[in-house]
């Protein structure tokens, strides 16, 4: 039981420290991606890139 408690404490505090002092977020509808230079430089390429990354926007 003690080991389980220590694991729980470690997990809880790790999440809190990661968020509070390193700025990490673990929940929410967001994703990080690296935009290739071609996407950044091509008009409209964002749309295709976002769509291919699961952000099916537009009307």
């Amino acid at each position: 039981m003690r080991i389980l408690y220590l694991l729980f404490l470690g997990g809880g505090f790790s999440l809190m420290v990661a968020n509070g002092f390193l700025g990490r977020e673990f929940f929410g509808n967001r994703r990080r991606a690296d935009l290739p230079p071609s996407v950044r430089q091509t008009p409209g390429a964002y749309r295709t890139f976002l769509h291919n990354n699961g952000f099916h926007g537009g009307k």
Binding site: N29, R30, R32, P36
Partner: peptide, 13 residues
């Protein structure tokens, strides 16, 4: 989107 590194935080709200 980072103008220098290309890192992008994609989100939906």
């Amino acid at each position: 989107v980072s103008e220098t590194t290309g890192v992008a935080e994609l989100f939906l709200v």
